[in-house]
Amino acid sequence: MAEDRHDGDIMSIPGATDSIDAATFEQILEMDDDEEERDFSKSIVYDFFTQAENTFGKMDTSLEEKNLKTLSELGHFLKGSSATLGLTKVKDSCEKIQHYGQRKDETGTKDLASDDEALKKLAAAIKQAKTEFRDVEKVLRKFYHDDS
């Protein structure tokens, strides 16, 4: 029923296809009572924006403090919510952050040589995550007709 028609298919927005998992995101859209307002999904997505910004802020601080453990936890935290929303790219980067924070390689299988190596990789991964977040944020804001 809900699949029949979305007002504006999010996947038609440029950049959506590779950063958003359609099935996951659409099952959240289906929960919207009003397909015009989309109060429910919109508030979740916008809360996620705030949550992500906060988390990135904490990541920057932890990176300066070289706190690998916290970085791993933050990565895991943001991984969970981005995965739930189907924001695959952000999720993948967050997973890397989680692994690097544990001094493992990006798949979490091999140990990294040193904290320094981990931090170097973390800095890159956080940067990547931020970029990917900005990209998908644009797509989502467009979807919710937010031009700010």
Partner: peptide
Amino acid sequence: EDDPTCRRIGSKFLYA
């Protein structure tokens, strides 16, 4: 669930 996003979506599904 500590993550608000997951918690809200999970609750919504359960409610459904």
